[in-house]
């Protein structure tokens, strides 16, 4: 069944995340990071940073940090077991650190299909703000297999 295109323009329920050094430490361990500004608060402070630096893809993790990270796909009645990540991109305006509180505000901007509906694509764009200032944005394309 094709996803109803009426969902284009749908707002994703906004959420906020408190970025912690604890989570960044585990992310660094998982990704093999060796530069301590990404996992050691003391090293980050010595480097003149206000906290542990979040690496370039971490906006995505925080965007997922909610009770139902794919709430928008559930609203569209997609089978999350048939989901693949198709594309991901980021624009960066300001670095973010442990101790920051970030607000995520997203919208569905496109829905399309290929191969006679065998692959469906849902595009979500999210703005990330810190105290009202946009620090980055992200664009995710999720693919749903038939």
């Amino acid at each position: 069944m094709l996803i109803d295109k009426k969902h284009i323009g749908m707002k994703v329920p906004p959420h906020s995340v408190n970025l912690t050094a604890w989570q960044l430490k585990w992310f660094a361990k998982a990704t093999g990071e060796t530069n301590p500004i990404y996992f050691d608060e003391e090293a980050a402070h010595k480097a003149g940073l206000p906290g542990v630096l979040a690496p370039p893809t971490f906006f995505f993790c925080m965007d997922m940090d909610k009770e139902h990270p794919f709430d928008y796909l559930e609203t569209m009645e997609c089978d999350l077991g048939k989901m693949l990540h198709g594309e991901q991109s980021f624009n960066y305006y300001k670095p973010i650190y442990s101790g920051d509180k970030l607000d995520f505000d997203g919208e569905i901007t496109d829905i399309y299909d290929k191969k006679n509906g065998a692959l469906q694509f849902v595009v979500k764009e999210v703005k990330v703000r810190r105290q009202g200032e946009v620090v980055g944005d992200l664009r995710s394309v999720m693919v749903i297999r038939a």
């Binding site: 630096l53 690496p55 370039p56 893809t57 693949l84 990540h85 198709g86 594309e87 991901q88 991109s89 980021f90 624009n91 960066y92 670095p95 664009r139």
Partner: peptide
């Protein structure tokens, strides 16, 4: 340094 990155996108 990370602050030099303006944009970053990937296709899986």
């Amino acid at each position: 340094p990370q602050e030099a990155i303006r944009s970053f996108g990937v296709r899986f």
